[in-house]
Write a protein that binds this DNA or RNA. Structure first.
Length: 414
RNA sequence: GGACAGUUGGGUGAGCUGGCUGAAACCACAUCCCUGCUAAGGAUGCGUACGGGUAACUGUACCGAGGGUUCGAAUCCCUCACUGUCCGCCA
């Protein structure tokens, strides 16, 4: 949730920022009006209540002094009707505002480049030179077939399309990667946590998946529960509605979870292979920081994810997302894209975002700064997406006969 | 899933024969004082959210959530959620 007071006071500046992210000015104009309406509705309501409270307090006095209360009672009853009316108005204003406000994305940082979509993203650097093959590198699904690593058909049978089964060495490699990632993260100071893979709607709203992106989520029938689309949800919301002390910050968390996404709207994209699945494993980093710390921690998280790829010997590049490609909650995002020789392109394998206080405002995560309660900054990033790493290893470490080498650092984990 | 008990501020925990309780007390925390040496003593402050005010301060709401009764509810009633215990079931 954006800071509505800021929007109201610095409307032109705020709308300029949000336009960068593709929000039209009319929506913002509307939002500003709704906020104003709510404020005045609340003011009149509170005034009426104040009067009524004062009158009510008199009853105690009157009773003790044995005075006649019939007149007072009539007056209070009159006020009461007015309050009921004002209450309805205030509530309507509140609901109308929330409907719009919760659907407004975060402000991008000033440093975020202008741009409409991924074509306008900026490559910051490349790490590691892609290997030269003296044969035509295969795509991972061919390799999967040759090695018997991925059983796409039976995954579909068990669930539906976009589900798959890892077998044998691939299953072991998946597990090895998870352990390897968690270990590296822990060495960097992240506390390892193991969390529920199902969260309730309050938490999903806290991190921004709800209410706007409900279609992307798997919901548990008849319950107020959803399968998590990323560990960012449980990790960040670990501190939902809490007031932390400044001493505790920064809080660095890492956790492995499967992630469940409906992938609504990506029909036809990446249908082949396991680049885009309804269920995939991911090791996530989450940081809860003061506003002052968040920049430095952000850099650290990017470096960490990049280092992991480097340790695995996977060529990748670092991409700064432009305003138009930025996610809903993000103020700034850096993507890591790994080289896939079979596909002959770089593909996203990690996305590290600073949401500033956007999620904190929704999730009510604050810390005590002296006497004041201040919203924390929350950051999240993959380190890394496990399934895509597996794909990257398959394609980068393939031999001409389709067999696959295991990266050196993983040998202790297999 | 069934039965009973509970859910109060950062924590422990009173209040629950309805008004003077936004909430005692204790702990934690913050500032100051004393003392001097690492542990203790004293004073004051200290819930959250939103609004008004330069500020002191002040208004409204919140005692698990949502409804209801009442002029007035932490206190009474209803529904739901959660926690605990016993039973059932089970990794």
């Amino acid at each position: 949730m954006i800071d509505l007071k800021y929007l109201q006071k610095n409307f032109d500046e705020a709308s300029a920022k949000l336009i960068k992210k593709g929000v039209d000015e009319l929506t913002l104009e509307n939002l500003k009006e709704l906020f104003k309406t709510l404020k005045s509705a609340n003011a009149t309501l509170e005034e009426a209540k104040s009067e009524q409270n004062k009158m009510s307090k008199l009853f105690g006095e009157y009773m003790r002094e044995k005075k006649d209360i019939t007149e007072l009672k009539a007056k209070v009853n009159e006020k009461k009707e007015e309050i009921v009316r004002l209450q309805a108005i205030a509530r309507e204003a509140q609901e109308a505002l929330e409907l719009v406000a919760l659907a407004i994305p975060n402000f991008p940082d000033d440093s975020v480049p202008e741009g409409a979509n991924e074509d306008d993203n900026i490559e910051l650097k490349k790490v590691l030179e892609p290997r030269k093959f003296d044969f035509k590198p295969k795509e991972h699904w061919e390799l999967a077939q040759i090695n018997g690593w991925i059983d796409f058909e039976r995954g579909v049978k068990l669930a539906k399309s976009r589900f798959s089964v890892l077998r044998g060495e691939a299953a072991r490699l998946e597990r090895a990667l998870i352990n390897f990632f968690l270990d590296v993260n822990r060495e960097k100071g992240f506390e390892e946590v193991c969390v529920p893979f199902i969260n309730n709607s309050t938490m999903l709203q806290g991190t921004g998946q709800l209410p706007k992106f409900e279609d992307d989520l798997f919901k548990i029938d008849g319950e107020d529960l959803y399968l998590i689309p990323t560990a960012e949800v449980p990790l960040t919301n670990l501190y939902n509605d809490e007031i932390l002390t400044s001493k505790e910050l920064p809080i660095l968390l890492t956790g492995y979870t499967p992630c469940f996404r409906k992938e609504a709207g990506s029909a036809g994209r990446d249908t082949r292979g396991m680049i885009r699945q309804h269920q995939f494993d991911k090791v996530e980093m989450v940081a809860i920081t003061t506003p002052q710390q968040s920049e430095e921690i952000f850099e650290m998280m990017v470096d960490n994810a990049s280092e992991i790829l480097t340790k695995l010997g996977l060529p990748h590049r670092v991409i700064e997302l432009c305003g138009g490609d930025l996610g809903f909650s993000a103020a700034r995002t850096i993507d890591l894209e790994v080289w896939l020789p079979g596909q002959d392109k770089y593909r996203e394998i990690s996305s590290i975002s600073n949401t500033r206080d956007f999620q904190a405002r929704r999730a009510k995560i604050r810390y005590k700064d002296g006497k004041k309660n201040v919203l924390v900054n929350t950051l999240n990033g993959s380190a890394l997406a496990v399934g895509r790493t597996l794909v990257a290893i398959m394609e980068n470490y393939q031999n001409e006969d389709g067999t696959i080498e295991i990266p050196e650092v993983l040998k202790n984990y297999m």
